[in-house]
Design a protein around this nucleic acid. Sequence first.
RNA 1: GGGCAGUUAGCUCAGCGGCUAGAGCGCUUGGUUUACAUCCAAGAAGUCACAGGUUCAAAUCCUGUACUGCCCACCA
Length: 810
Amino acid sequence: MIEELPKNYDSQAREKYWQDFWDEKNIFKFDQDKDGEIFSIDTPPPYVSAAHLHVGHAMSYTQAEFVVRYKRMMGYNVFYPMGFDDNGLPTERFVEKKYKIDKSKISKKEFIELCLKETKEGGETYKKFWKRLGISVDWSLLYSTIDERCQRTAQRSFIDLYNKGLIERKEEPVIWCPECQTALSQSDLEDLEQKTYLNYINFQFEDGKTAPIATTRPELLPACVALYANPKDERYEKYIGKKAIVPIFNYEVPVIADEKVDMDFGTGLMMVCTFGDTEDIERWKSDKLMTRIAIDKTGCLTSVAGEFSGLSIKKGREAILQTLKEKLLLIKQEDIENVCNVHERCGTISEFIITPQWFIKVVDHKKDWIKRGNELKWFPKFMKVKYDAWVEGLKWDWCISRQRYYGVPFPVWYCDKCKKVILPEDKDLPVDPTTDSCLKVCDCGTKDLKPEIDVMDTWMTSSLTPLINASWKYPKEKSLMDKIYPMNLRVQAFEIIRTWLFYTIVKSHYHTDTLPWNDVMISGWGLDEKGRKISKSLGNFIDPETIIEQYSADALRFWSAESTLGQNLRYNEEEVKVGKRTITKLWNASKLVISHLQDYQHNLAIPRELEIEDKWILSELEKSLTLYHKHFSHYEYAKAKDAINTFFWDRFCDYYLELVKYRLYGDDISAESKLSAQWTLYTALLAILKMFAPIMPFISEEIYQLYFKGQEKLESIHISQLPTADERLRSDKAIEEFEDILRIVQEVRKYKANKNYSIKKELKELVVEMPAEKLREYEKLLKAVLSFGKITAGKGNLDLGEDIKISIIE
RNA sequence: GGGCAGUUAGCUCAGCGGCUAGAGCGCUUGGUUUACAUCCAAGAAGUCACAGGUUCAAAUCCUGUACUGCCCACCA
């Protein structure tokens, strides 16, 4: 046992030490045979390729981790894996940019090798970072979405859905990114506000008369397949059922009636193209319009655009407008602002084209999604609204194929002769049909099979994280399905409710007819000091590693614990500094306490004679413990932190330690009184450390190891038990009675402060209006703390309220 | 256009029917108390965005308005 703690705590060196210690001793290792109920957490696998972790990531991951550490210290057998999302479009974009690659000029093999290299490096960087932050995952459970197990599970998922008839290949208009040259899903899109022109363009009717339509997309003129008008609109009534002639391109299109057409927008005459927007697609389907595709996969005009073919969308628009002007068909142009959909990964405006793609059916099952959303417990509750709104607004099935290289391949071959789909056996998964040959022959007898060359959307894999973690459909001895599935808790930020959360619910519903988890905890974002989203384009990147170097990981975590669950949190260096000061305070207070516990052996039994101030602080401790557990059970780590923080600073340090000193230093103290003080100090400080442990794991471990480990004989504070409220230690009467004494202490301090006296300055006499017998119990305490020559019972002239009166005689 | 958050001390936030509206930072004054000056004590500072309403009682509930952020829809 140590005599005294070192003067200072070196967070840089010690945090590093404990990271390695926890690793070596396997403190966070999940052992399925260990005692205790299992608590499993599904945590987001970040994209590793971009090396973009900022203070917001640090915030949301630590917030989830507070809960994990809390659960572990409540005796749960914690299953806490980390994943890396390293397949799919984000990775490809990153590699393309970093190596300035043109995808069409490099072989698929070379490209994938670069992706793998980047993700491997990224993974290492990330792992180092999480460890530094004190994230207590079991690294032996690490998965990466491109690894074999994930690929196998994703392909299994595909085959299972295919066999259940929930997945199909359709040749339909899909959202397309001309830059990335791939199909997208609705959730890949973002809004972009832009200034543009509403162009009024004259169409001619059979009777030779003309009327203008209004459009922001004149380059889609050659894709025009119909005009629509409201049947109540007197201006166009006579043309319904007749034909109109498309200017420049000179072909006929029908004029169709539709009550949904807004007579007040533009000219009230609406041009429908294949395809400008979702309205076009709906009408194309319902009214069986012809198909004229004017934009190709690269975002250039096709042959239907005649002399304009080959031009980009932008150039084509300019050229067509120029020609319209020359022919006097452009009536006018109005400035308008509109919102268009752009691909969130590259910012390019999305188009619609028709290609065959794989879809998972989601639109027809909205009721199921709403039901599942209702079954799930949401923390905080208001986040569920975002989910419901997303489900209500679903228009498209989930397009899961991407025309990219780096991703999980579809386990699909097509028969060249009868076009049938051929799937591999489960035991042969994972497969890559572009390199592996199919072990099957088509029913029609042909061996000539063509591979599916598309790869899966990245969400196709990450939507399976609970099933991947549980090793779904693996042999029983290798599977954790009956132990950790459905998982207890999903943690994530709010912006991926419509993707990760939604798709995971879809998968578990289809595959196992359950929810993937019981609870979901949604965090907000960490913003910059001014409340803006942290992004490269704003140049406001805040590097958490720099903060850790300057103030320690514990201090950064202290800041993370500030935000109410689900709320955004601005980065605030001042709060990190407060965290740093709290660490120092913990260190110093522990130094004092431990130096007086050297000859002490703790006994769980409560001493028979506890002094009044000991009863008081223990009661206060019980009060904050009750609050602490209440808040953590609802994942309200911020309120839990507040409970322990307030107890530690305001009650324990500022009052109790000052009040108890005279019993520690004095030599005329009875053995019972000293034991009472030591028992209380031990119990309170250990509770304080344990309550701080989920939030500031390093400093609490440091102090625990220096003293309490010797008493409790445990490897680490993080696998020790958090104290729960003990009714025997709580006495509301003690609190009430002692509040009177604290009021006297405060009043005397105020008196001295007003007179600019030092607190230590001894005054002649303190008179307290209290029975002499009772005052005797507090005499020593008041004398020592307030520095008076004598304390006497008698009439007081200062009224402190609550029937307390005192006099101060200098 | 619809929705969800938010608007409380100079700053960052807590409180969400009922004691005199709180904390931290900052500010003012004082203090070398043998754990800590990365500290301690005392203090100043708020028409709780605005306007109505419900109630014995509203920062807290309801209605509306304004502003900020986000989500969705529209986008011919």
